[in-house]
Measured scan of single mutants.
Amino acid sequence: CHSECLGNCSQPDDPTKCVACRNFYLDGRCVETCPPPYYHFQDWRCVNFSFCQDLHHKCKNSRRQGCHQYVIHNNKCIPECPSGYTMNSSNLLCTPCLGPCPKVCHLLEGEKTIDSVTSAQELRGCTVINGSLIINIRGGNNLAAELEANLGLIEEISGYLKIRRSYALVSLSFFRKLRLIRGETLEIGNYSFYALDNQNLRQLWDWSKHNLTITQGKLFFHYNPKLCLSEIHKMEEVSGTKGRQERNDIALKTNGDQASCENELLKFSYIRTSFDKILLRWEPYWPPDFRDLLGFMLFYKEAPYQNVTEFDGQDACGSNSWTVVDIDPPLRSNDPKSQNHPGWLMRGLKPWTQYAIFVKTLVTFSDERRTYGAKSDIIYVQTDATNPSVPLDPISVSNSSSQIILKWKPPSDPNGNITHYLVFWERQAEDSELFELDYCLKGLKLPSRTWSPPFESEDSQKHNQSEYEDSAGECCSCPKTDSQILKELEESSFRKTFEDYLHNVVFVPRKT
């Protein structure tokens, strides 16, 4: 048989008469490798580009789960590009990614509803959504962080984005990388972005840091009482949809009607710091009717980097990364020049730590249904340095008659930039024990000054392991946590139920 035959053949030295091919099969003959313009397919066939392209389009058009959109890589027609490569849609070739590779997620039936953290986790790592997304989240724990972890990498949506009755959302900033909504599939009414009845939605994105392009379709905003109209108009300008909307697409009466839409800028007039305090004062603000001013709200939190936005980490279910302080308005003076500047002394802060701070007014709604208010920009203030805590785990070892090696770990709280350490030492008198000992005694162990690591005695271990207080009263049991108490109650309830079950099964009433 021919060298490319495997198993047997019907005619000697003829690659077209093989029972099976050793390498690849091409047009009725066995070959060692697939010549151009053919590609290896499933490690035994040679196919042309049209064959591989037909497989790709067949799966793409069917949208069946589990099928493969075949691509070409290293002269092979394979189910998908290997790690580190992405497909070129024009020629199906796998090309190296520039940075992290995109991950295209194809949605069944063309859309997916995100109504819980669990459903959001199914899209973790996706960068391109081939379909439409509907966000409908009523509640949950730590929602802002969970949504950002699972949806934060999405850069492109081919269909539309719909935010509907998501009472738990305060902001859409968890879509931190969303840059493009194509609108290839539109919501009824030709809408590519749809926001309806979101009672706590206050911000779409921080438009000073976020760009969003909507290729096709219109915007729809109705019944978002805490979303200011200025935020919607800003989205029109940034996304390129200005002029597409009709009169009733953006409701003037049901958007922002319960919001404090600040239209003035508060400026800080005085800032002073110490290692654990920050004193702030800002310019006074009074609405047209000074009785509408209820006070100020001061927001602050630790910020290692200057990239904080107002609604980071917030949701309507209680999660809030900001510390909020309510401040009463100052006494009002008739003389504008003698107006008191409101302020606040922030206490209990960490030394040498940068804080993000902003302040906003708290006002009631005027009778004319106009909203007044003022808010400052987010500023960054760093507390002063102070003395560091003591170095940890000092170790001293003498390696000769004239040297001592000293080692330690950095302090747990540096409280500033540590530039150097101060080492103090003092000579001590020799131990009298060394002169009084009889060095001729056998088995004498000389006193040693070398360091030995501390260890816990058996008594201390027994005390720590004991669940009861000892007789001397030195140790006591740790208080039980809520989960331990709940577990004990469940076990007790189970024992009672099981005992009742045994009584009912074992003891049967005697027939009379």
Score class of each variant (00 low, 15 high):
396 S>M: 04
363 V>R: 12
280 L>H: 00
331 L>S: 11
386 T>A: 11
131 G>A: 04
296 F>C: 02
165 R>M: 09
350 K>S: 10
150 N>C: 06
377 D>H: 06
359 V>F: 02
262 E>F: 10
287 P>D: 04
351 P>Y: 08
259 A>N: 02
132 S>G: 09
185 T>D: 05
162 K>W: 11
154 I>A: 11
351 P>H: 05
118 T>W: 08
171 S>H: 15
261 C>W: 02
239 S>C: 10
120 A>R: 02
323 T>A: 13
343 G>T: 15
242 K>W: 10
201 L>S: 00
368 E>I: 13
158 S>E: 05
119 S>D: 11
146 E>D: 10
260 S>M: 07
383 T>M: 09
385 A>E: 10
123 L>K: 00
185 T>Q: 13
313 G>L: 09
402 S>M: 15
273 T>S: 14
249 D>P: 09
312 D>T: 14
283 E>N: 11
261 C>S: 02
149 A>E: 10
365 F>P: 14
373 G>P: 06
397 V>A: 07
159 G>W: 01
252 L>S: 14
106 H>V: 13
251 A>T: 10
173 S>N: 12
331 L>F: 05
400 S>H: 12
268 F>L: 07
113 T>P: 05
239 S>M: 14
374 A>H: 05
218 K>R: 09
325 V>L: 11
218 K>M: 11
213 T>R: 12
121 Q>S: 06
182 R>F: 04
341 H>S: 12
109 E>A: 09
319 S>K: 08
114 I>R: 00
139 G>S: 15
358 F>I: 06
131 G>I: 00
175 F>I: 13
277 K>T: 09
134 I>F: 10
258 Q>W: 14
165 R>H: 06
237 E>W: 13
357 I>P: 00
313 G>F: 03
299 F>M: 10
287 P>M: 11
204 L>C: 12
373 G>W: 05
332 R>Q: 15
280 L>V: 15
301 K>M: 12
269 S>M: 07
370 R>Q: 07
216 Q>I: 05
170 V>G: 13
246 E>F: 11
114 I>L: 08
118 T>F: 13
379 I>F: 04
247 R>S: 09
135 I>L: 06
272 R>L: 11
259 A>C: 15
260 S>Y: 03
261 C>F: 02
268 F>W: 10
389 S>Y: 05
212 L>C: 02
172 L>A: 07
145 A>L: 13
227 L>Q: 02
393 D>E: 06
243 G>R: 11
173 S>T: 11
231 E>Q: 08
117 V>A: 13
147 L>M: 14
147 L>E: 01
129 I>N: 00
208 S>R: 09
263 N>R: 10
317 C>H: 15
140 G>Y: 08
249 D>A: 08
191 Y>K: 05
233 H>L: 02
383 T>A: 03
136 N>H: 10
259 A>Q: 14
133 L>E: 00
406 L>P: 00
175 F>L: 11
295 G>Q: 15
167 Y>A: 15
287 P>W: 03
401 S>A: 13
294 L>I: 08
343 G>M: 13
363 V>L: 07
215 T>F: 08
318 G>V: 05
409 K>V: 12
110 G>R: 10
141 N>H: 13
185 T>L: 11
299 F>Q: 05
354 Q>I: 13
134 I>D: 13
265 L>S: 12
232 I>G: 01
155 E>M: 04
138 R>I: 14
264 E>L: 14
231 E>N: 02
281 R>M: 09
267 K>S: 12
195 A>S: 09
296 F>D: 03
148 E>K: 09
370 R>A: 14
180 L>W: 14
384 D>V: 14
398 S>I: 14
211 N>I: 14
139 G>C: 04
165 R>E: 11
162 K>M: 08
305 Y>M: 13
180 L>M: 05
171 S>A: 11
219 L>T: 03
219 L>M: 10
153 L>C: 13
333 S>H: 10
261 C>N: 02
156 E>V: 05
374 A>W: 07
208 S>A: 15
246 E>C: 06
282 W>K: 00
